[in-house]
């Protein structure tokens, strides 16, 4: 106790700061860092969840590199990212841009756009799964059939399935992005627009010279946020393809689903951990690149 009394105010502040920080620090160490470390350790081992673990060196990583399914899944993961992020970014901006100018039923429309974000991904995935079915139950195909157009195989196709699964995922994230964009738009000082008006500039110039450049921090934030989301896509895919997870023929399987299957249906924990480490590295690299972009603003 005397020890504490002898400290300077500065030192006492530090002691108190660390006392309060101890809770999140302990939390992070026990809940985040310890399992992360263990996962990296397990990736060099062989373990089927029962029985004991045994060392296998780089074997899991060797299997990974030689596994054609892994490369297919790797490609899918980046397809989700490369299609999902730009599409949702453009859509969210266009909607936010016009919603911002709208007075009539503004709050109601904003609520409608935000609603999917609050909906459970599982429920949404199952509803879309039903939309995509063939005649006689599927909504889209029934519409096509009633117009005399041939059915489209949405989910049971190696080419259509991935975009079909991605669509509800984009839609679900849209509400959040619109809200962020609108906040960004509101944050642009009106004086710029007034100045532009006085100068008599067209809307295109206003958009490209004022709005978009000033939205840059917002855009970077949304890109970072949504690309991490798409890299980790799981619930939509899993729920829309439960009968043949990630199928058909692995056409929709993202990395997270492969990890899940390796771990909890094949009980190959070492191999699953190796895949997790790869996902971790990918996420780390993507985040670092994007943070760098963010800093340069």
């Amino acid at each position: 106790m005397t020890g504490y009394r002898n400290l300077t105010i500065r030192q006492k502040q530090i002691v108190w700061a660390w006392t309060f920080l101890a809770v999140p620090v302990v939390f992070y160490v026990v809940i985040r860092f310890y399992p992360t470390g263990t996962a990296i350790l397990i990736s060099f081992q062989d373990w089927n969840l029962l029985g004991s673990r045994s060392w296998s060196g780089l074997e899991n990583y060797r299997t990974l590199v030689a596994d054609p399914v892994f490369w297919k899944v790797f490609k899918n993961t980046f397809l989700y990212l490369l299609i999902g992020t730009p599409v949702s970014l453009v859509l969210a901006f266009v909607i936010a841009y016009h919603l911002d100018k709208l007075r009539f039923a503004h709050g109601f429309l904003r609520m409608l756009y935000f609603l999917p974000f609050m909906t459970s991904a599982v429920a949404m995935a199952w509803v879309w799964r039903w939309f995509y079915q063939g005649v006689p139950i599927g909504l889209f195909n029934n519409m096509l059939a009633s117009m005399g157009i041939a059915q489209v195989e949405f989910l049971n196709s190696t080419t259509n399935a991935l975009p079909a699964v991605l669509a509800p995922a984009v839609w679900a994230g849209l509400g959040f992005q619109i809200i962020i964009f609108m906040a960004g738009l509101r944050a642009i000082p009106t004086s710029y627009y007034e100045a532009a008006k006085i100068d008599g500039v067209g809307w295109w110039t206003v958009l490209t010279q004022i709005t978009i450049p000033l939205l840059r921090p917002t855009i970077v934030f949304i890109v970072v946020f949504s690309s991490i989301g798409f890299l980790r896509i799981f619930d939509h895919v899993f729920n829309m393809t439960t009968n043949n997870p990630g199928g058909p023929l692995n056409a929709t399987k993202p990395l997270v689903l492969m990890i899940y299957e390796t771990a909890f249906t094949n009980y190959d924990m070492g191999y699953a951990a190796a895949q997790t480490v790869v996902l971790f590295v990918i996420l780390l690299i993507v985040s670092l690149i994007q943070l760098r972009l963010l800093r340069s603003t």
Partner: peptide
């Protein structure tokens, strides 16, 4: 040895003929 993996083999067997 692994029922779900062995099931997947037959699922894919049919999907390859059907879709590819």
């Amino acid at each position: 040895a692994n029922e779900s993996a062995q099931r997947q083999v037959l699922v894919d067997m049919l999907a390859r003929t059907d879709l590819e």
